[in-house]
Amino acid sequence: MTVVAPVVAPPERLGTSRMPDGRRLAWAEWGPADGIPVLLCPGGATSRRLGFGTEAVHALGVRLVSADRPGLGASDPAPGRTLADWPDDVCALAADLGLGLDGLRVVGCSQGVPFALACAARGIATATAVVSGGPDMTLMSAYLAPEIRAMVEAVAADPSAAEAAFAAGADAEAIWAMVTGSCAAPDRALFGTPSFAAAYREALAEGFAQGPSGYARDTVLTMGRWPFDVGGITGPVDLWYGGLDTSMFHSPESGAALAEAIPTARRHVVAEAGGLVLWTHGERILRELVGKVA
């Protein structure tokens, strides 16, 4: 399979912002500083450095900002953090960077999806794009793959023990092997291109720069009961899936369940794409997102 790797340009600007409690939250930016603000909540274990649609941000007038969640990349840890805490960090980040909350678009990819939806549920996202993400898994355990059901049940039974188990043995190489070992053919082809593989590996290495605790905490939060109701989201939500996605964690089918739960959702299935649809169709996702009426 011949694949043209998407452009994943390095960040144009890097920095950190102080949160009200003194923590640093690290961010990366692409596009014009006065552009339409779009916040990316990155996928599992990856850092702020892995942008998407970077070849199109200037033409679209998009200021793409990606932020490391606490304990990942260059963001300070926040012990005991919850999904409900992330919108508070986003509000502080938006204030520091001058993004404003009256036109902020939010994108969540894979494990970043619940964090994006937490912002939508709080009402601080004008529009939201969910990319390769599933619903609250505690509400559909009967339909989960056995491996995922076991993770959900472990978190429900003893969150602290589950978090320790997720951290044990987790590192950039282990996540790379997991992601590339079970993905669809289009995704394997993309991971096989030197430029994209290098960008993804760099993001994983930075994601684990402080060890596995940030990733483990994210996994507990996404596998546990979400502390918000997606049925109460009022802003537009576009859900994007690759028709060939074979991931246990997200699929077009799980996307259908999430679409039914969000009254403002519109589901898109890109027939020829896999789970890496954020990168293979990044410009299209951005165009839809910035075209939403605030």
Score class of each variant (00 low, 15 high):
F249H: 06
P37F: 11
L139M: 10
L40S: 07
P32W: 07
E283C: 09
E202T: 11
R266D: 13
W30P: 06
V152M: 04
A56V: 09
L93K: 00
T54F: 14
A5Q: 10
S110K: 05
A56M: 12
I262P: 09
P227N: 08
E163S: 00
A94K: 01
A172M: 03
G51M: 10
E173Y: 02
D68H: 02
A45G: 13
E253W: 10
D88M: 13
R18L: 15
G133F: 03
G73Q: 02
A205F: 04
R24E: 14
M1T: 06
R63N: 12
A142I: 03
E55Y: 08
L286T: 02
A177K: 05
G51E: 10
L101T: 03
A259I: 02
L244R: 04
M223A: 09
W30Q: 02
W240Q: 00
R18Y: 11
L144G: 08
W240H: 14
A154S: 15
R217A: 14
L139R: 13
G275D: 05
R217S: 12
A9G: 12
G214P: 11
D76Q: 07
D158M: 00
A127H: 03
Y200Q: 02
W27A: 09
E260F: 05
G44N: 11
Q210K: 09
H281W: 07
V179S: 03
L99P: 05
R18N: 14
G22R: 04
V38P: 14
P79V: 10
A177V: 08
W226A: 01
P10C: 13
S213E: 14
L221V: 04
R105M: 11
G35D: 10
G103C: 12
V131D: 00
D187Y: 04
L25H: 03
A265H: 07
G275A: 12
I148M: 14
L239M: 07
P227H: 07
R48N: 12
P20T: 06
A121Y: 06
G181P: 10
G282R: 00
A271P: 01
M178W: 06
A5F: 15
A84R: 15
G291H: 05
V277E: 01
T126H: 07
A154K: 01
S66E: 08
G232Y: 02
P11I: 14
E147K: 07
I175F: 03
P10D: 11
G181D: 13
G43S: 11
A273Y: 00
M151S: 11
G207I: 06
R63L: 10
G214K: 00
M178G: 10
A256T: 10
A199P: 03
V290Y: 00
G224S: 08
A78W: 09
A203K: 01
G103S: 14
V38F: 12
S254V: 03
R18S: 15
P37N: 11
P194S: 08
D238R: 02
A118Y: 07
L93I: 14
V65A: 09
A59F: 05
P37K: 05
A127V: 05
D88V: 15
E283S: 05
W86Y: 15
H268D: 02
S254N: 09
W240C: 08
L72P: 04
P10Q: 12
I285S: 01
V220Y: 07
D187P: 06
V152S: 06
A9E: 14
A150Y: 12
D245W: 01
P227Y: 07
G71R: 04
S213D: 15
P70M: 12
L39R: 05
Q111A: 15
R122S: 08
G242M: 03
V90Q: 00
F166Y: 07
A120G: 14
L25P: 00
A197S: 15
